[in-house]
Nucleic acid binder design. Sequence first.
DNA 1: ATAATTGCAAATTTTTTGCAGGTTC
DNA 2: GAACCTGCAAAAAATTTGCAATTAT
Lengths: 133, 133
Amino acid sequence: MTDYITLLKENDLKATIQRTSILKSIDHAGHINIDEIYEDVKEQHPTLSLATIYKNIILMQQNNVIIEVPMNGEKSKYELKKDDHIHLICQSCGEIRDTEITKEREQILTIENFQLNNAQINLYGLCHKCQKI
Amino acid sequence: MTDYITLLKENDLKATIQRTSILKSIDHAGHINIDEIYEDVKEQHPTLSLATIYKNIILMQQNNVIIEVPMNGEKSKYELKKDDHIHLICQSCGEIRDTEITKEREQILTIENFQLNNAQINLYGLCHKCQKI
DNA sequence: ATAATTGCAAATTTTTTGCAGGTTC
DNA sequence: GAACCTGCAAAAAATTTGCAATTAT
């Protein structure tokens, strides 16, 4: 993903330098929280305010550009909008890896009397590297 | 579940009236956030302070009495500690239903190179009732 | 040209902290 | 009676708001 301007326009948002910067930061990090975006984005745009980040995070969620990833015991992170997937969160190093919801897995999410809209699956544990330590 | 005093003591926490009240509130609601606990608990114990709730929510999580359920776009809710399970969250009426992670479903949680510790699965959609509306 | 967006500062809301007095075991 | 817990008030942190100036289309 690289054309944030198109991404924004396709979703009925004006392409401001602030928005493309925020998206670049999110895309680059994969999963990132508001404070981290702020630190990140300030390097190129020292005047970009935290209020602008808050406002845009809300707006870009509403317009399906980004997704909130609520975290256990810490601030929510954000990622670029993509199909439902599983987050593997390492409790040792903090790495968040995405993994696909395969067809077989999808069936498992078919639950009687419930019309699924979207799935938020966070698995906490140890990544490959940290298992060896 | 009814014996909150034993539950607390088994997990190395003193059984105060504040703690049993908070647990009763959580247990009764199923899933509930801090403000709701406060409103709830004040009825019986008008002097019970919000600070006490915050302190105890942290403590009871650390001591495995309760679990945080981070929510999309709203404050975290809390539930009594139990085995991993799936939350079915109705986007229309807000109801949160628990459903078991069956043996077949467990397959979704088996992922190469990841040592699973605990699973946080929130499915957003429409409950049976709200599908008909 | 118009409507939307930004940055700032201030307001609000949420969460944490310190400590004197009270409670549990 | 020792250690822990509570409630209060105050502090700190997080988020939202209003508005004049600027920017995107």
